[in-house]
Nucleic acid binder design. Structure first.
Lengths: 248, 248
DNA sequence: CGCAGATTTGAGATCTGTCAAGGGATGTGG
DNA sequence: CCACATCCCTTGACAGATCTCAAATCTGCG
Protein backbone atom coordinates (compact mmCIF):
# COMPACT_ATOMS: atom_id res chain seq x y z
CA UNK A 1 0.00 0.00 0.00
CA UNK A 2 1.41 3.33 -1.02
CA UNK A 3 1.88 6.07 1.51
CA UNK A 4 -1.22 8.25 1.37
CA UNK A 5 -1.47 11.93 2.20
CA UNK A 6 -3.31 10.95 5.35
CA UNK A 7 -0.46 8.72 6.42
CA UNK A 8 1.95 11.54 5.82
CA UNK A 9 -0.17 13.95 7.78
CA UNK A 10 -0.52 11.57 10.70
CA UNK A 11 3.13 10.64 10.67
CA UNK A 12 3.99 14.29 11.25
CA UNK A 13 2.21 14.02 14.58
CA UNK A 14 5.13 11.91 15.69
CA UNK A 15 3.38 9.75 18.19
CA UNK A 16 1.45 7.12 16.27
CA UNK A 17 2.88 3.63 16.38
CA UNK A 18 3.06 0.95 13.75
CA UNK A 19 0.02 -0.83 15.10
CA UNK A 20 -1.96 2.42 14.93
CA UNK A 21 -1.09 2.66 11.27
CA UNK A 22 -1.99 -0.98 10.84
CA UNK A 23 -5.43 -0.24 12.20
CA UNK A 24 -5.72 2.65 9.78
CA UNK A 25 -4.55 0.58 6.84
CA UNK A 26 -7.15 -2.03 7.61
CA UNK A 27 -9.79 0.64 7.00
CA UNK A 28 -8.36 1.84 3.72
CA UNK A 29 -8.57 -1.37 1.74
CA UNK A 30 -11.43 -0.56 -0.58
CA UNK A 31 -11.01 2.08 -3.22
CA UNK A 32 -13.38 4.17 -5.27
CA UNK A 33 -12.70 6.51 -8.10
CA UNK A 34 -14.69 9.50 -9.20
CA UNK A 35 -14.43 11.76 -12.19
CA UNK A 36 -14.99 15.48 -12.31
CA UNK A 37 -18.60 16.30 -11.46
CA UNK A 38 -19.38 12.94 -9.83
CA UNK A 39 -21.31 13.02 -6.60
CA UNK A 40 -19.52 11.21 -3.82
CA UNK A 41 -22.26 11.92 -1.29
CA UNK A 42 -25.78 12.89 -2.23
CA UNK A 43 -27.72 15.34 -0.12
CA UNK A 44 -30.34 13.66 2.02
CA UNK A 45 -28.62 10.35 1.45
CA UNK A 46 -28.24 7.78 4.17
CA UNK A 47 -24.71 7.92 5.41
CA UNK A 48 -23.22 4.74 6.70
CA UNK A 49 -19.83 5.20 5.16
CA UNK A 50 -16.75 7.27 5.63
CA UNK A 51 -14.27 8.23 2.94
CA UNK A 52 -10.64 9.17 2.97
CA UNK A 53 -9.70 11.27 0.01
CA UNK A 54 -6.50 9.84 -1.42
CA UNK A 55 -6.15 11.93 -4.52
CA UNK A 56 -7.98 14.79 -6.19
CA UNK A 57 -10.19 17.64 -5.10
CA UNK A 58 -13.75 17.47 -3.78
CA UNK A 59 -16.04 19.98 -2.15
CA UNK A 60 -18.88 19.76 0.32
CA UNK A 61 -21.99 21.86 -0.22
CA UNK A 62 -25.58 22.52 0.71
CA UNK A 63 -28.19 23.41 -1.85
CA UNK A 64 -31.50 25.17 -1.53
CA UNK A 65 -34.82 24.27 -3.09
CA UNK A 66 -34.62 27.24 -5.45
CA UNK A 67 -31.23 26.28 -6.84
CA UNK A 68 -28.99 28.41 -4.67
CA UNK A 69 -25.97 26.54 -3.45
CA UNK A 70 -23.35 27.15 -0.78
CA UNK A 71 -19.99 25.47 -0.76
CA UNK A 72 -18.99 24.65 2.82
CA UNK A 73 -15.40 23.56 2.34
CA UNK A 74 -12.94 21.96 0.00
CA UNK A 75 -11.38 18.61 0.60
CA UNK A 76 -7.87 17.81 -0.52
CA UNK A 77 -5.90 14.56 -0.34
CA UNK A 78 -5.66 13.35 3.24
CA UNK A 79 -9.01 14.82 4.23
CA UNK A 80 -11.79 12.72 5.67
CA UNK A 81 -15.35 12.82 4.39
CA UNK A 82 -18.13 11.79 6.72
CA UNK A 83 -16.15 11.41 9.91
CA UNK A 84 -19.46 11.69 11.76
CA UNK A 85 -21.40 9.44 9.43
CA UNK A 86 -21.84 6.77 12.05
CA UNK A 87 -23.66 9.26 14.24
CA UNK A 88 -25.87 10.99 11.70
CA UNK A 89 -28.73 9.28 9.97
CA UNK A 90 -28.69 11.39 6.85
CA UNK A 91 -26.23 13.76 5.31
CA UNK A 92 -27.32 17.39 5.20
CA UNK A 93 -24.78 18.02 2.52
CA UNK A 94 -23.50 16.76 -0.77
CA UNK A 95 -19.95 16.05 -1.85
CA UNK A 96 -18.85 16.42 -5.42
CA UNK A 97 -15.57 15.74 -7.17
CA UNK A 98 -13.90 18.69 -8.87
CA UNK A 99 -11.08 16.70 -10.41
CA UNK A 100 -10.72 12.97 -10.96
CA UNK A 101 -10.43 11.58 -7.46
CA UNK A 102 -9.47 8.42 -5.65
CA UNK A 103 -11.02 7.59 -2.31
CA UNK A 104 -10.86 4.86 0.25
CA UNK A 105 -14.28 3.96 1.57
CA UNK A 106 -15.38 1.91 4.54
CA UNK A 107 -18.41 1.47 6.81
CA UNK A 108 -18.43 4.11 9.52
CA UNK A 109 -18.93 1.47 12.14
CA UNK A 110 -15.50 0.09 11.35
CA UNK A 111 -14.03 3.49 12.06
CA UNK A 112 -15.74 3.65 15.42
CA UNK A 113 -14.53 0.20 16.28
CA UNK A 114 -10.98 1.02 15.24
CA UNK A 115 -10.96 4.22 17.27
CA UNK A 116 -12.35 2.47 20.31
CA UNK A 117 -9.39 0.11 20.28
CA UNK A 118 -6.61 2.49 19.35
CA UNK A 119 -6.78 5.61 21.50
CA UNK A 120 -3.82 7.25 19.79
CA UNK A 121 -5.63 6.96 16.49
CA UNK A 122 -8.64 8.48 18.17
CA UNK A 123 -6.57 11.43 19.27
CA UNK A 124 -5.22 11.81 15.76
CA UNK A 125 -8.66 11.71 14.20
CA UNK A 126 -9.96 14.25 16.67
CA UNK A 127 -7.05 16.42 15.72
CA UNK A 128 -8.03 16.14 12.08
CA UNK A 129 -11.63 16.92 12.94
CA UNK A 130 -10.41 19.95 14.87
CA UNK A 131 -8.46 21.14 11.85
CA UNK A 132 -11.59 20.83 9.77
CA UNK A 133 -13.63 22.83 12.21
CA UNK A 134 -11.09 25.60 12.29
CA UNK A 135 -11.46 25.91 8.55
CA UNK A 136 -15.24 26.03 8.87
CA UNK A 137 -14.83 28.81 11.43
CA UNK A 138 -12.68 30.74 9.03
CA UNK A 139 -15.15 30.22 6.22
CA UNK A 140 -17.84 31.77 8.38
CA UNK A 141 -15.66 34.75 9.18
CA UNK A 142 -14.62 35.07 5.55
CA UNK A 143 -18.14 35.07 4.18
CA UNK A 144 -19.59 37.09 7.03
CA UNK A 145 -17.06 39.83 7.56
CA UNK A 146 -14.81 40.28 4.57
CA UNK A 147 -15.29 42.37 1.44
CA UNK A 148 -15.92 40.41 -1.74
CA UNK A 149 -12.47 40.69 -3.31
CA UNK A 150 -10.79 40.00 0.03
CA UNK A 151 -12.97 36.93 0.47
CA UNK A 152 -11.67 35.61 -2.80
CA UNK A 153 -8.03 36.40 -2.12
CA UNK A 154 -8.37 34.87 1.33
CA UNK A 155 -9.80 31.64 -0.02
CA UNK A 156 -7.04 31.42 -2.60
CA UNK A 157 -4.46 31.68 0.13
CA UNK A 158 -6.08 29.07 2.30
CA UNK A 159 -5.97 26.63 -0.57
CA UNK A 160 -2.44 27.65 -1.47
CA UNK A 161 -1.17 27.02 2.05
CA UNK A 162 -2.95 23.69 2.20
CA UNK A 163 -1.41 22.64 -1.09
CA UNK A 164 2.01 23.70 0.13
CA UNK A 165 1.68 21.56 3.22
CA UNK A 166 0.71 18.65 1.03
CA UNK A 167 3.66 19.17 -1.27
CA UNK A 168 1.24 19.69 -4.15
CA UNK A 169 2.32 23.20 -4.94
CA UNK A 170 5.33 25.45 -4.95
CA UNK A 171 6.02 28.28 -2.57
CA UNK A 172 5.49 31.02 -5.09
CA UNK A 173 2.28 29.99 -6.78
CA UNK A 174 -0.53 27.50 -6.99
CA UNK A 175 -2.88 26.31 -9.67
CA UNK A 176 -6.45 25.85 -8.50
CA UNK A 177 -9.04 23.77 -10.38
CA UNK A 178 -11.89 26.14 -9.56
CA UNK A 179 -14.42 27.72 -11.86
CA UNK A 180 -15.77 31.16 -11.15
CA UNK A 181 -19.23 29.73 -10.64
CA UNK A 182 -17.86 27.48 -7.92
CA UNK A 183 -16.03 30.40 -6.38
CA UNK A 184 -19.21 32.42 -6.30
CA UNK A 185 -21.03 29.61 -4.50
CA UNK A 186 -18.18 29.38 -2.03
CA UNK A 187 -17.91 33.05 -1.29
CA UNK A 188 -21.59 33.88 -1.21
CA UNK A 189 -21.82 36.13 -4.23
CA UNK A 190 -23.27 36.03 -7.74
CA UNK A 191 -21.14 34.57 -10.49
CA UNK A 192 -21.14 37.96 -12.16
CA UNK A 193 -19.68 39.57 -9.10
CA UNK A 194 -17.22 36.74 -8.67
CA UNK A 195 -16.01 37.52 -12.15
CA UNK A 196 -15.68 41.21 -11.33
CA UNK A 197 -13.63 40.43 -8.23
CA UNK A 198 -11.49 38.01 -10.15
CA UNK A 199 -10.89 40.52 -12.91
CA UNK A 200 -9.88 43.07 -10.30
CA UNK A 201 -7.30 40.68 -8.87
CA UNK A 202 -6.19 39.91 -12.40
CA UNK A 203 -5.61 43.58 -13.17
CA UNK A 204 -3.58 43.82 -9.98
CA UNK A 205 -1.42 40.98 -11.33
CA UNK A 206 -2.15 38.81 -8.31
CA UNK A 207 -3.87 36.01 -10.21
CA UNK A 208 -4.39 34.93 -13.79
CA UNK A 209 -6.19 32.52 -16.03
CA UNK A 210 -3.71 30.52 -18.05
CA UNK A 211 -4.90 27.84 -20.41
CA UNK A 212 -8.19 27.91 -18.54
CA UNK A 213 -6.50 27.35 -15.21
CA UNK A 214 -6.65 29.61 -12.21
CA UNK A 215 -3.10 30.57 -11.30
CA UNK A 216 -1.93 32.47 -8.23
CA UNK A 217 0.85 34.80 -9.31
CA UNK A 218 1.89 36.60 -6.15
CA UNK A 219 0.80 34.95 -2.95
CA UNK A 220 2.66 37.49 -0.85
CA UNK A 221 0.71 40.42 -2.23
CA UNK A 222 -2.44 38.34 -2.15
CA UNK A 223 -1.92 37.77 1.55
CA UNK A 224 -1.51 41.47 2.08
CA UNK A 225 -4.61 42.15 -0.01
CA UNK A 226 -6.66 39.67 1.99
CA UNK A 227 -5.33 40.33 5.46
CA UNK A 228 -4.50 36.65 5.51
CA UNK A 229 -3.02 35.07 8.62
CA UNK A 230 -2.28 31.38 8.21
CA UNK A 231 -2.37 30.76 11.95
CA UNK A 232 -5.61 28.80 11.75
CA UNK A 233 -4.00 26.35 9.34
CA UNK A 234 -1.04 25.57 11.54
CA UNK A 235 -0.96 21.90 12.30
CA UNK A 236 0.72 22.30 15.62
CA UNK A 237 1.89 19.15 17.28
CA UNK A 238 -0.07 17.79 20.17
CA UNK A 239 1.40 18.83 23.52
CA UNK A 240 3.50 16.08 24.97
CA UNK A 241 1.53 15.76 28.18
CA UNK A 242 -1.56 14.96 26.16
CA UNK A 243 0.25 12.14 24.45
CA UNK A 244 1.60 10.84 27.72
CA UNK A 245 -1.94 10.11 28.77
CA UNK A 246 -2.17 7.57 26.00
CA UNK A 247 0.91 5.49 26.62
CA UNK A 248 -1.24 2.48 27.14
CA UNK B 1 -24.76 16.09 41.38
CA UNK B 2 -27.80 17.48 39.65
CA UNK B 3 -28.79 16.26 36.22
CA UNK B 4 -27.22 18.62 33.70
CA UNK B 5 -28.47 19.42 30.24
CA UNK B 6 -25.60 17.37 28.87
CA UNK B 7 -26.69 14.35 30.89
CA UNK B 8 -30.19 14.76 29.58
CA UNK B 9 -28.98 15.04 26.04
CA UNK B 10 -26.78 11.98 26.33
CA UNK B 11 -29.45 9.96 28.10
CA UNK B 12 -31.69 10.44 25.09
CA UNK B 13 -29.15 8.46 23.08
CA UNK B 14 -30.35 5.44 24.99
CA UNK B 15 -27.17 3.44 24.95
CA UNK B 16 -24.86 4.93 27.55
CA UNK B 17 -24.41 2.88 30.71
CA UNK B 18 -24.05 3.96 34.27
CA UNK B 19 -20.29 3.62 34.19
CA UNK B 20 -20.18 5.85 31.12
CA UNK B 21 -22.02 8.51 33.07
CA UNK B 22 -19.68 7.94 35.98
CA UNK B 23 -16.75 8.71 33.73
CA UNK B 24 -18.50 11.85 32.59
CA UNK B 25 -19.34 12.95 36.11
CA UNK B 26 -15.73 12.55 37.11
CA UNK B 27 -14.89 15.23 34.58
CA UNK B 28 -17.56 17.66 35.68
CA UNK B 29 -16.45 18.21 39.26
CA UNK B 30 -15.04 21.68 39.04
CA UNK B 31 -17.33 24.60 38.40
CA UNK B 32 -16.86 28.12 37.14
CA UNK B 33 -19.30 30.96 36.92
CA UNK B 34 -19.29 33.87 34.51
CA UNK B 35 -21.36 37.00 34.31
CA UNK B 36 -22.62 38.72 31.22
CA UNK B 37 -19.73 39.98 29.13
CA UNK B 38 -17.08 37.78 30.76
CA UNK B 39 -14.62 36.09 28.50
CA UNK B 40 -14.54 32.34 29.01
CA UNK B 41 -11.87 31.81 26.38
CA UNK B 42 -9.60 34.55 25.12
CA UNK B 43 -8.52 34.63 21.50
CA UNK B 44 -4.94 33.48 21.03
CA UNK B 45 -5.01 31.95 24.46
CA UNK B 46 -3.39 28.64 25.23
CA UNK B 47 -6.12 26.06 25.43
CA UNK B 48 -5.55 23.15 27.74
CA UNK B 49 -9.04 23.03 29.09
CA UNK B 50 -12.48 21.98 28.02
CA UNK B 51 -15.74 23.37 29.34
CA UNK B 52 -19.25 22.03 29.54
CA UNK B 53 -21.82 24.76 29.66
CA UNK B 54 -24.26 23.92 32.43
CA UNK B 55 -26.36 27.04 32.48
CA UNK B 56 -26.60 30.29 30.54
CA UNK B 57 -25.73 31.47 27.04
CA UNK B 58 -22.29 31.96 25.53
CA UNK B 59 -21.06 32.61 22.02
CA UNK B 60 -17.91 31.84 20.12
CA UNK B 61 -16.38 34.46 17.85
CA UNK B 62 -13.39 35.60 15.85
CA UNK B 63 -12.30 39.20 15.76
CA UNK B 64 -10.20 41.10 13.26
CA UNK B 65 -7.41 43.57 13.90
CA UNK B 66 -9.60 46.46 12.79
CA UNK B 67 -12.41 45.71 15.19
CA UNK B 68 -14.67 43.67 12.94
CA UNK B 69 -16.05 40.61 14.66
CA UNK B 70 -17.81 37.47 13.50
CA UNK B 71 -19.88 35.30 15.77
CA UNK B 72 -19.38 31.64 14.83
CA UNK B 73 -22.04 29.98 16.95
CA UNK B 74 -24.03 30.18 20.14
CA UNK B 75 -23.61 27.75 22.96
CA UNK B 76 -26.53 26.75 25.16
CA UNK B 77 -26.65 24.50 28.23
CA UNK B 78 -25.31 21.05 27.41
CA UNK B 79 -22.89 22.34 24.79
CA UNK B 80 -19.18 21.68 24.96
CA UNK B 81 -16.56 24.39 24.57
CA UNK B 82 -13.09 23.39 23.46
CA UNK B 83 -13.73 19.77 22.60
CA UNK B 84 -10.56 19.89 20.52
CA UNK B 85 -8.52 21.85 23.01
CA UNK B 86 -6.20 18.96 23.67
CA UNK B 87 -5.20 18.94 20.03
CA UNK B 88 -4.84 22.64 19.36
CA UNK B 89 -2.12 24.71 20.86
CA UNK B 90 -3.96 28.00 20.81
CA UNK B 91 -7.56 28.96 20.36
CA UNK B 92 -8.34 30.88 17.20
CA UNK B 93 -11.52 32.13 18.77
CA UNK B 94 -12.91 33.75 21.85
CA UNK B 95 -15.87 32.71 23.95
CA UNK B 96 -17.95 35.24 25.82
CA UNK B 97 -20.88 34.90 28.17
CA UNK B 98 -24.09 36.60 27.13
CA UNK B 99 -25.98 35.84 30.31
CA UNK B 100 -24.71 34.74 33.71
CA UNK B 101 -23.38 31.26 33.09
CA UNK B 102 -22.23 28.18 34.96
CA UNK B 103 -19.63 25.90 33.47
CA UNK B 104 -17.81 22.75 34.39
CA UNK B 105 -14.14 22.93 33.49
CA UNK B 106 -11.44 20.28 33.29
CA UNK B 107 -8.07 19.68 31.63
CA UNK B 108 -8.54 18.47 28.09
CA UNK B 109 -6.16 15.60 28.71
CA UNK B 110 -8.65 14.15 31.18
CA UNK B 111 -11.26 14.16 28.46
CA UNK B 112 -8.97 12.29 26.08
CA UNK B 113 -8.17 9.77 28.74
CA UNK B 114 -11.81 9.25 29.58
CA UNK B 115 -12.75 8.79 25.95
CA UNK B 116 -9.94 6.34 25.39
CA UNK B 117 -11.37 4.12 28.12
CA UNK B 118 -15.07 4.45 27.44
CA UNK B 119 -15.79 3.94 23.75
CA UNK B 120 -19.50 4.56 24.15
CA UNK B 121 -18.75 7.96 25.62
CA UNK B 122 -16.46 8.55 22.68
CA UNK B 123 -19.27 7.78 20.31
CA UNK B 124 -21.55 10.12 22.21
CA UNK B 125 -19.03 12.95 22.17
CA UNK B 126 -18.44 12.49 18.48
CA UNK B 127 -22.15 12.69 18.03
CA UNK B 128 -22.18 16.00 19.89
CA UNK B 129 -19.27 17.25 17.81
CA UNK B 130 -21.18 16.23 14.70
CA UNK B 131 -24.20 18.22 15.86
CA UNK B 132 -21.98 21.23 16.33
CA UNK B 133 -20.53 20.93 12.89
CA UNK B 134 -23.93 20.70 11.30
CA UNK B 135 -24.76 24.03 12.89
CA UNK B 136 -21.53 25.53 11.59
CA UNK B 137 -22.46 24.29 8.13
CA UNK B 138 -25.83 25.95 8.41
CA UNK B 139 -24.27 29.17 9.62
CA UNK B 140 -22.11 29.22 6.50
CA UNK B 141 -25.12 28.67 4.27
CA UNK B 142 -27.12 31.25 6.18
CA UNK B 143 -24.52 33.97 5.92
CA UNK B 144 -23.45 33.06 2.42
CA UNK B 145 -26.69 32.47 0.63
CA UNK B 146 -29.65 34.03 2.42
CA UNK B 147 -31.04 37.55 2.22
CA UNK B 148 -30.48 39.69 5.28
CA UNK B 149 -33.95 39.50 6.82
CA UNK B 150 -34.13 35.77 6.12
CA UNK B 151 -30.77 35.28 7.78
CA UNK B 152 -32.14 36.86 10.90
CA UNK B 153 -35.40 34.93 10.91
CA UNK B 154 -33.48 31.72 10.25
CA UNK B 155 -31.13 32.30 13.18
CA UNK B 156 -34.06 33.05 15.46
CA UNK B 157 -35.62 29.74 14.55
CA UNK B 158 -32.46 27.77 15.08
CA UNK B 159 -32.21 29.15 18.58
CA UNK B 160 -35.91 28.64 19.20
CA UNK B 161 -35.74 24.98 18.21
CA UNK B 162 -32.67 24.44 20.35
CA UNK B 163 -34.37 26.03 23.33
CA UNK B 164 -37.43 23.86 22.77
CA UNK B 165 -35.33 20.71 22.79
CA UNK B 166 -33.77 21.85 26.04
CA UNK B 167 -37.11 22.58 27.61
CA UNK B 168 -36.09 26.19 28.02
CA UNK B 169 -38.84 27.65 25.90
CA UNK B 170 -42.44 27.10 24.94
CA UNK B 171 -43.68 25.89 21.61
CA UNK B 172 -45.18 29.19 20.56
CA UNK B 173 -42.44 31.65 21.40
CA UNK B 174 -38.96 32.19 22.71
CA UNK B 175 -37.14 35.01 24.42
CA UNK B 176 -33.58 35.53 23.21
CA UNK B 177 -30.94 37.49 25.15
CA UNK B 178 -29.42 38.99 22.00
CA UNK B 179 -28.65 42.59 21.21
CA UNK B 180 -28.89 43.89 17.69
CA UNK B 181 -25.16 44.54 17.65
CA UNK B 182 -24.56 40.88 18.44
CA UNK B 183 -27.04 39.87 15.78
CA UNK B 184 -25.23 41.98 13.22
CA UNK B 185 -21.92 40.33 14.08
CA UNK B 186 -23.56 36.94 13.76
CA UNK B 187 -25.28 37.56 10.46
CA UNK B 188 -22.52 39.47 8.74
CA UNK B 189 -24.18 42.84 8.42
CA UNK B 190 -23.86 46.31 9.91
CA UNK B 191 -25.73 47.04 13.10
CA UNK B 192 -27.74 49.65 11.23
CA UNK B 193 -28.90 47.10 8.75
CA UNK B 194 -29.58 44.58 11.49
CA UNK B 195 -31.88 47.13 13.01
CA UNK B 196 -33.68 47.69 9.73
CA UNK B 197 -34.21 43.95 9.27
CA UNK B 198 -35.39 43.64 12.80
CA UNK B 199 -37.82 46.52 12.35
CA UNK B 200 -39.14 44.85 9.23
CA UNK B 201 -39.82 41.65 11.14
CA UNK B 202 -41.35 43.72 13.91
CA UNK B 203 -43.74 45.42 11.51
CA UNK B 204 -44.70 41.99 10.22
CA UNK B 205 -45.59 41.08 13.82
CA UNK B 206 -43.17 38.17 13.82
CA UNK B 207 -40.93 39.46 16.58
CA UNK B 208 -40.95 42.22 19.18
CA UNK B 209 -38.90 43.98 21.79
CA UNK B 210 -40.60 43.76 25.15
CA UNK B 211 -38.97 45.24 28.21
CA UNK B 212 -35.73 45.25 26.28
CA UNK B 213 -36.02 41.57 25.46
CA UNK B 214 -36.13 40.01 22.02
CA UNK B 215 -39.35 38.01 21.76
CA UNK B 216 -40.39 35.67 18.96
CA UNK B 217 -44.12 36.14 18.40
CA UNK B 218 -44.96 33.75 15.61
CA UNK B 219 -42.42 31.04 14.97
CA UNK B 220 -44.62 29.43 12.35
CA UNK B 221 -44.69 32.50 10.15
CA UNK B 222 -41.03 33.12 10.91
CA UNK B 223 -40.21 29.66 9.59
CA UNK B 224 -42.13 30.41 6.44
CA UNK B 225 -40.38 33.76 6.12
CA UNK B 226 -36.97 32.16 6.51
CA UNK B 227 -37.48 28.99 4.54
CA UNK B 228 -36.45 27.21 7.71
CA UNK B 229 -36.11 23.45 7.78
CA UNK B 230 -35.15 22.09 11.18
CA UNK B 231 -33.76 18.89 9.72
CA UNK B 232 -30.19 19.80 10.51
CA UNK B 233 -31.07 20.11 14.20
CA UNK B 234 -32.60 16.68 14.48
CA UNK B 235 -30.78 14.67 17.06
CA UNK B 236 -31.48 11.35 15.47
CA UNK B 237 -30.52 8.30 17.41
CA UNK B 238 -27.48 6.34 16.43
CA UNK B 239 -28.29 3.34 14.26
CA UNK B 240 -28.38 0.19 16.31
CA UNK B 241 -25.68 -1.61 14.36
CA UNK B 242 -23.25 1.14 15.22
CA UNK B 243 -23.93 0.68 18.87
CA UNK B 244 -23.55 -3.07 18.58
CA UNK B 245 -19.96 -2.55 17.66
CA UNK B 246 -19.35 -1.17 21.11
CA UNK B 247 -20.85 -3.87 23.28
CA UNK B 248 -17.52 -4.46 24.88
C1' DC C 1 -27.79 64.63 36.82
C1' DG C 2 -24.48 62.68 33.49
C1' DC C 3 -22.83 58.71 31.21
C1' DA C 4 -22.76 54.46 28.62
C1' DG C 5 -25.01 51.29 25.83
C1' DA C 6 -28.89 50.03 22.88
C1' DT C 7 -32.16 51.28 19.50
C1' DT C 8 -33.84 54.05 15.73
C1' DT C 9 -33.92 56.88 11.55
C1' DG C 10 -32.38 59.63 7.42
C1' DA C 11 -29.32 60.64 3.54
C1' DG C 12 -26.03 59.63 0.37
C1' DA C 13 -22.37 56.69 -1.30
C1' DT C 14 -21.03 52.18 -2.49
C1' DC C 15 -21.52 47.39 -3.23
C1' DT C 16 -23.81 43.66 -5.20
C1' DG C 17 -27.51 41.31 -7.85
C1' DT C 18 -30.17 40.65 -11.97
C1' DC C 19 -30.86 40.80 -16.73
C1' DA C 20 -29.03 40.60 -21.10
C1' DA C 21 -25.73 39.61 -24.43
C1' DG C 22 -21.53 38.10 -26.67
C1' DG C 23 -17.14 35.45 -27.27
C1' DG C 24 -14.17 31.50 -26.87
C1' DA C 25 -13.18 26.79 -26.08
C1' DT C 26 -14.57 22.01 -26.26
C1' DG C 27 -17.10 18.04 -27.62
C1' DT C 28 -20.60 15.50 -30.36
C1' DG C 29 -23.11 14.01 -34.25
C1' DG C 30 -23.85 14.24 -39.03
C1' DC D 1 -15.06 18.93 -41.89
C1' DC D 2 -19.03 21.60 -40.34
C1' DA D 3 -23.16 22.62 -37.44
C1' DC D 4 -24.55 22.72 -33.11
C1' DA D 5 -24.78 22.52 -28.14
C1' DT D 6 -22.66 23.30 -23.86
C1' DC D 7 -19.87 25.34 -20.55
C1' DC D 8 -17.16 29.01 -18.97
C1' DC D 9 -15.74 33.68 -18.98
C1' DT D 10 -16.75 38.59 -19.70
C1' DT D 11 -19.04 43.03 -19.90
C1' DG D 12 -22.66 46.85 -19.63
C1' DA D 13 -26.69 48.82 -17.65
C1' DC D 14 -29.73 49.31 -14.19
C1' DA D 15 -32.16 48.18 -9.89
C1' DG D 16 -31.86 47.07 -5.32
C1' DA D 17 -29.42 45.97 -1.12
C1' DT D 18 -26.28 47.37 2.16
C1' DC D 19 -22.76 50.40 4.29
C1' DT D 20 -21.18 54.57 6.41
C1' DC D 21 -21.88 58.79 8.62
C1' DA D 22 -24.61 61.38 11.50
C1' DA D 23 -27.77 62.33 14.91
C1' DA D 24 -31.70 61.63 18.04
C1' DT D 25 -34.11 58.95 21.62
C1' DC D 26 -34.40 55.90 25.42
C1' DT D 27 -32.95 53.13 29.31
C1' DG D 28 -30.49 51.78 33.31
C1' DC D 29 -27.01 52.97 36.47
C1' DG D 30 -23.82 55.38 39.59
Amino acid sequence: MTESALHHRLRALNYLRDDDFDALDALLKHRETATSGDLVVMEEQDMHRTWVLLDGWTFRYKSFEDGRRQVLNYMLPGDIIGLYSAMLRRSDYGVEAITPATLAVFPSTELIEALAHTPRLLLAMSWIAGQGERMLDEQIARVGRRAAAERMAHLFLELHVRLLKLGLSREAASVLPLTQALLSDTLGMSHVHANRCFRTLTREKLVALRDGQLVLLDTGKLAQRAGFDAGYLEESAVPLDTVQALKT
